[in-house]
């Protein structure tokens, strides 16, 4: 991003732990560390990608930032204001400025409501004095903004295709003119042809409204196209962050390399050696000591088990949490 860009969101050492087990009669509670010390910041108009495989805690990060889940520790600063523990009432006035787009466009729209009511709901909640006609007019405008027509307002969600529903979800999120959007896998439930449309819509809206977006995804091709910077997450921790071009050309963490290697090649002629990750992601209830990735890392040393490696700056705007500097890792295609 350009020098002196305004930071809109700053997350410091964010932790979100869930306690699991432990019913009334059976004790033995254990702690699931879904997010364990994540720090990053996003500037106005910037798109930060958050990638990682299933279960790495990406969604928990998004929900916790929006205070849809109570953070266990750390600090969330939005537009300079600490919102980590502010009350629900105080949160209400901030909600319009930070919104959420969901992965599953079939579950995120209330099947009992017309699209007009769904998209108009933010206005009913935050501007209850608004007249019916005025609300309908603004809903119509917003539907046009996201590429639907005002006439669609009277229909129900099931009458739309997946891509159209995702547009409805985006319209709802944008109704109150947010400055920050968490897009939680917004295209992974859609067909590839529709994915491009939704991505272009998001990029277009970012440019017009200077939206900052936390773009959560497991699809590296999409992330490479959309994001300005990328943060790679594994088992509740960030393992590498860098500008997109830098990360793709010069990955410094073995997990990032493995992710690149797992992405499908568009060109079958190219022969590459694949880095195959064996086994599943370890349980976040009982994570490995030291570097959490060491159990699946092919470069692991005995030293990796000793201490949790911190994120170190390894280049301009490039941080990695690997203790080995001697690796030459395969870049993305």
């Amino acid at each position: 991003m350009s020098v002196g860009a305004e930071t809109i969101l700053e997350v410091l050492e964010l932790r979100k732990w869930f306690s699991v087990g432990g019913g009334v009669l059976s004790g033995a509670k254990s702690t699931l560390k879904a997010v364990d010390g994540v720090s990053f910041s996003i500037n106005r108009g910037e798109i930060l990608g958050l990638v990682g495989e299933s279960g790495s805690g990406k969604t928990s990060v998004g929900r916790t930032i929006l205070r849809l889940a109570e953070p266990t520790g750390g600090t969330i600063r939005f537009r300079g204001q600490d919102i980590t523990h502010i009350s629900r009432g105080a949160l209400r006035s901030i909600r319009p400025k930070m919104q959420l787009v969901f992965q599953d466009p079939f579950a995120s729209l209330n099947p009992r409501m017309t699209v007009g009511r769904i998209v108009g709901a933010p206005l009913m909640i935050h501007e209850p004095g608004l007249g019916r006609a005025e609300r309908a007019r603004r809903v119509g405008e917003m539907l046009q903004t996201v590429g639907l027509s005002p006439g669609h307002a009277e229909r129900y969600p099931h009458e739309f295709s997946g891509g159209q529903r995702q547009r409805v979800g985006i319209a709802r999120a944008l109704m109150l003119a947010p400055e920050f959007l968490v897009a939680d896998e917004p295209v992974s439930a859609l067909d590839v042809s529709i994915q491009a449309q939704i991505i272009n819509l998001l990029l277009d809206l970012r440019a017009r409204l200077s939206l900052a977006i936390l773009f959560i995804s497991h699809d590296l091709a999409v992330v490479g196209h959309v994001c300005d910077r990328v943060a790679v997450m594994y088992l509740g921790r960030l393992v590498e962050t860098a500008a997109t071009a830098e990360l793709f050309a010069n990955p410094r963490h073995p997990y990032t390399e493995a992710l690149f290697s797992a992405a499908p090649d568009p060109d079958p002629e190219i022969k590459r050696t694949r880095v195959i990750l064996t086994g599943d992601i370890p349980s976040p209830i009982n994570p490995p000591t030291g570097c959490v990735f060491r159990t699946r890392c092919r470069y692991a040393l005995p030293a990796c088990a000793e201490a949790v490696p911190p994120l170190r700056t390894v280049g301009p705007g490039h941080q990695s949490a690997c203790i080995r500097d001697d690796l030459s890792l395969q870049p993305a295609i």
């Binding site: 929900r63 849809l68 319009p96 919104q99 579950a107 979800g169």
Partner: peptide
């Protein structure tokens, strides 16, 4: 637990709403 309920929560809707 469904997404549309989370969406309403994210909009700052009251419990009654």
């Amino acid at each position: 637990e469904r997404d549309f309920a989370v969406a309403a929560q994210a909009l700052g809707a009251s419990d009654a709403h």
